[in-house]
Write a protein that binds this DNA or RNA. Structure first.
Lengths: 365, 365
DNA sequence: GTGAAAGCGCTAACAG
DNA sequence: CTGTTAGCGCTTTCAC
C-alpha cells in the first residue's frame, strides 16, 4: 500500500530521492557536484540515479538558475545587398527551400561559416552548452532573435555579420542582452568582439609581393566606409611606405568579383606596367586574375595577385590564390569564451581580442 | 503602500496581469491565443504587455507544456573514436580548433549540410522553433545527444548520418525519443526517414548516357552493403536492361576518390572500349575522370561520366560533372515536418517519404 | 468569460 | 552534512 503510486512518466528528483532514501536537496547536491555530501550517500544517490534512469529536467533547472546553457549562434546580414563574402555563384538551387534559401544557402557555401561553427562547438561542448542556429537576414528575423533571447531561450548571442551596417548588434545591446561579435562593428558600441589584425594581414601581403620582386604594386580595396577595409588599406600602405613605396595605385571595389574586374581594368588603364596587386578579398582578387589573363598578363609571372580571407573563392580561382587567412576557429572559440565570461559578470566592460592572420601561399603570388 | 514592491528584473505574467487589472490566467489566455476572451479585455492585456515589455519565460512555459520548441539537428557519423573508458572526463578543454575540428570542418565543407540547414530552418522558423546544432562523431558525443534529449532540452532530433552503420538512430529509438532520419537506416528500425528514389536517379543517369549515344557502359558502385548503393545499382541495371543492355560491367568502390580510380582502372582493363560510366557518387566519378584522362581518354568525348549527389566535388572536377541531384532542402523540410507531426501524436507509426532526384547536366556527360 | 489555486521539477537559502 | 521550505513563471483544471 505504501508504494501504490508509482511514478508514471520520466523519473524526477523526487523519485530518485525516495529510491535513495534521502531528500531532494541531497540528490540535487550530488548531481550538481556540490561538496559536503557524505561519500556513502553520494554513492547511494548515484546508484539510485542509475537504477531509475533519471535525467534532470532542463526547463525546471533553467527556471530557477536563469540559465539555459544554450547560446544563439546568429548569422546576420542583409538579405538583398551584396555580401562581403560568399556570393560566388549564387544561383543554382533555391529550388524549394523557400524565401531565405538563397541567404542560408550562400552562407554555408563558404567554408568560413563551417569554421566558425567548428570553433564554437568545440568550445561549447565540453562545457555542456549548445548553439542554436539562427539567421537574421531580415528585420523580422532580427526581431525574432531579440525575442528569443528576451524569452530566456538562450543565455546570449554570438553574432557573425556578413556586412558592416548590421543593426542587430545595436538591438542586442539596447535590450541589454549579452552578445559577442565576430569583427568590429561599424558603429562603435559597448559590445565585445573578436577580430583579426587587418593591418598585419595587409602587411604580410605587401611584404610577400615585395619579396618576390614586385615593384609596381597596386591594391583593390573594399568599400571604404567599412572599418576593416580602411585597416587593410592602411596596413598595406604603411608596409609599402616603410619599404620605399610611399605611393601606390588604389581602386575601390565592392567585394564582388565583378567589382574586382572593374577595378583591375581601371588600374591597368592607368598603370599598364603593374606587376603586383593586393585585393581586399578573394572574390575581387579572382576578378582581377580574370581581367589580367584576358589582357594577356600571366599570373603570377607578369602580375602577382594576393587576396584576403582564404575563402572558397581562393581555391576555385585559377591560379589558386595566395591569400591572407584568419584563424577563424580560434576566433570563434574566443567569442564563445568571451560570452560565457560575460554571463558570469553581467556588468563587465566590453572587451575585444585581436588575432594575427597568416599568409597562405598558393600559386597567384 | 500597495505598490511599493515593484518588479525588479524582467516583467512576469503577474506584472502584466496587475497592469491590465486581470488575472494571470487571462493574460496567459490572450498570449496563447485561446478563444473565449472578451475583446475589450484582450485589448487591455495587449496594451499591458506592450507597456511592460513583457516576454514570456520559455523555461517556465516549457516546464508545464513539456515542449521546448527546440529540435536537435544532429550530424552523425564516424569520426576518429578514442573510445577508451578513460576519456569519460577527458577532453576537458581542448583549447580551440582542436581534435573535433576535422570532423565538423569537413562536414561543412560540403554544400550538402548547408542545404540541409537551409531546409530545416525555413520550415522551423515560421513555427517558432529552432535547431540546436550537434555533432555525434564519437560514442561520447552520441551519448550526449541522447542525454540532451532525455533532459527535455529539445523535443526531438533530426539526424543526418554520414555513415550507414551509425548507432545513433538505434540509441534514439531505444530511448523512445522522437527522431527522423535523412536516408533509410541500414538496419530497418521503427523510425521515420526521408530519402531519395535512388533507383530513379540511377535511371536518369542510364537514360542520359544512352541518349548521348553511349553503348558500352559500366558502373562504379559504392559498398554493396549500403542500401542506397544497392538501389542505385538496381535502378541502373533495370534501366539499362529495359533499353536492351542486360549486362553491364560493374566495379565496387568505397565512395572515395581513390577507390573510384582503382575501380576505373579495373573496368578499363577488362573493357578498354568503354564509352560511358555511372559512378555512385561524385568523388568516385572524379577519380574515374582522373584515370580516364591519364589513359588518354577524353571526357566526355571518348567516355562520358556521370556522378551522384551534386556535391562540391562535382563542380571541382574537371570537367565539371554531370550528376544526379537530390532535392535536399525539400527533404530537410520534410524531415522537420515529420518530426513535428510525430511530436503531436507520439504513438504514430514511422513513416518514410521518398523524393525524386533530378539530373544536373554539366560537361562530363 | 474570468479568477483561484494547484502544481510542472528543480535549486537555494536556512535551519538543524 | 542533510532535510525543510520556498519559490522560479507559467499553464490549466475547476469553480464561479
Amino acid at each position: 500500500m505504501t508504494d501504490d503510486l508509482r511514478p508514471a512518466g520520466t523519473p524526477t528528483l523526487e523519485d530518485v530521492a525516495r529510491a535513495a532514501g534521502v531528500s531532494r536537496a541531497t540528490v540535487s547536491r550530488v548531481i550538481n557536484g556540490v561538496r559536503n555530501v557524505d561519500p556513502v550517500i553520494q554513492e547511494a544517490v548515484r546508484h539510485a540515479v542509475a537504477s531509475t534512469g533519471y535525467a534532470p529536467n532542463r526547463a525546471a533547472r533553467s527556471l530557477v538558475t536563469r540559465r539555459t546553457d544554450a547560446i544563439a549562434l546568429v548569422v546576420s546580414g542583409a538579405g538583398v545587398e551584396p555580401e562581403t563574402e560568399a556570393d560566388a555563384d549564387a544561383s543554382a538551387d533555391e529550388a524549394d527551400g523557400g524565401e531565405g534559401a538563397s541567404f542560408t544557402g550562400q552562407v554555408f557555401a563558404d567554408p568560413f561559416f563551417g569554421r566558425v561553427v567548428t570553433g564554437v562547438v568545440n568550445y561549447l561542448r565540453p562545457r555542456g552548452m549548445h548553439p542554436v542556429l539562427m539567421f537574421a537576414e531580415t528585420s523580422r528575423a532580427r526581431e525574432d532573435v531579440v525575442a528569443f533571447l528576451r524569452q530566456g531561450s538562450a543565455d546570449g548571442a554570438l553574432v557573425v555579420s556578413t556586412h558592416a551596417e548590421d543593426p542587430l548588434p545595436g538591438m542586442l545591446t539596447d535590450a541589454g542582452l549579452p552578445a559577442v561579435l565576430y569583427a568590429r562593428p561599424a558603429r562603435a558600441a559597448r559590445i565585445s568582439y573578436v577580430d583579426v589584425a587587418h593591418q598585419d594581414g595587409a602587411r604580410l601581403a605587401a611584404e610577400h609581393l615585395l619579396a618576390r620582386g614586385c615593384r609596381r604594386i597596386a591594391t583593390i580595396t573594399g568599400p571604404l566606409d567599412v572599418p576593416a577595409v580602411q585597416e587593410r588599406l592602411a596596413g598595406f600602405r604603411d608596409a609599402m611606405a616603410q619599404n620605399g613605396h610611399p605611393y601606390i595605385a588604389i581602386a575601390e571595389g565592392r567585394f564582388t568579383q565583378e567589382s574586382g574586374e572593374t577595378a583591375m581594368e581601371r588600374l591597368l588603364a592607368e598603370h599598364p606596367d603593374l606587376d603586383g596587386v593586393f585585393a581586399a578579398n578573394d572574390l575581387m582578387a579572382t576578378g582581377a586574375c580574370h581581367v589580367l589573363r584576358e589582357r594577356g598578363k600571366r599570373v603570377p609571372e607578369d602580375v602577382a595577385v594576393i587576396g584576403f580571407d582564404d575563402s572558397s573563392a581562393a581555391l576555385a580561382c585559377r591560379p589558386p590564390l595566395t591569400t591572407v587567412r584568419q584563424p577563424v576557429e580560434a576566433m570563434a572559440a574566443e567569442m564563445a569564451r568571451l560570452l560565457i565570461e560575460r554571463l558570469g559578470k553581467p556588468e563587465g566592460a566590453a572587451t575585444s581580442v585581436i588575432f594575427e592572420p597568416s599568409l597562405v601561399v598558393r600559386d597567384s603570388a
